[in-house]
């Protein structure tokens, strides 16, 4: 790893550790190994959003050319959000792409991702299915996001109707995550989800 990249990451690591956001529990940064090329970030779901109460893990890969190229970041925790792929966790965020600047730091990036959870950009979607639900049925979107936060990120809202429907599909032999994706995709219409799963 290039000298400047390692040096920067070490400094940024310290910066995050000292920050008030870490003190307040909003973000966290951990080393995955000792090479400084891979880190794990954690962000708390922002208040007054369907992600409130959830803890979301992020995979952070630092390229050789850092900070002249952006870090590669994706969600490890499954999340229902228009700008995050519900399949791969890939994030659509301008500062991780063409709006990256060498002077940006991991702290700002983590805070930007957290801000994205508060204010989705449905016109620049990463996940077309989620974005469509966000636009067409915001109420159902919020419930679905809350449900995913509960199941995958340890959020507090247990939505029994949704759990029951997932259980119905589990009883039919469908794998749990697959069942949840199908139901979420088809606006929790059990019949259509089943049809899609068995067609």
């Amino acid at each position: 790893m290039a000298n400047i990249a390692a040096k920067r990451i070490k400094r940024e690591f310290k910066e995050v550790m000292k920050s008030e956001e870490v003190a307040g529990g909003a973000i966290k940064l951990e080393l995955v190994d000792n090479s400084w090329t891979e880190l794990q970030g954690t962000i708390a779901g922002p208040p007054d959003t369907p992600y409130e109460g959830g803890t979301f893990l992020l995979e952070i890969k630092v390229p050789e050319t850092y900070p002249f190229n952006p870090p590669k970041i994706r969600f490890i925790t499954k999340i229902w959000h228009p700008n995050v792929s519900s399949v791969t966790g890939a994030i659509c965020l301008d500062i991780l792409k063409d709006q990256w600047a060498a002077a940006l730091t991991l702290r700002t990036v983590l805070l930007s991702i957290q801000a994205l959870l508060s204010a989705a950009e449905p016109n620049d979607p990463q996940d077309a299915v989620v974005a469509k639900q966000y636009r067409d049925n915001l109420f159902l979107f919020n419930l679905t996001a809350r449900h995913w936060t509960n199941v995958y990120a340890g959020g507090p809202s247990n939505i029994t109707d949704f759990n029951d429907m997932v259980q119905r599909l589990l009883d039919m032999g469908v794998e749990e995550h697959q069942a949840r994706v199908a139901l979420s995709t088809y606006d929790w219409e059990l019949e259509r989800a089943t049809e899609q799963l068995f067609s």
């Binding site: 400047i4 002249f68 600047a101 002077a103 700002t108």
Partner: peptide, 25 residues
């Protein structure tokens, strides 16, 4: 840092549109 920045950008095929390294600049 400017030198590194330009090298990375040029290697990626960017020329006329290379920007300042500051955030949001």
């Amino acid at each position: 840092c400017w030198a590194m920045h330009f090298e990375v950008q040029i290697m990626q095929g960017v020329s006329n549109t290379i920007q300042c390294m500051a955030q949001e600049c």
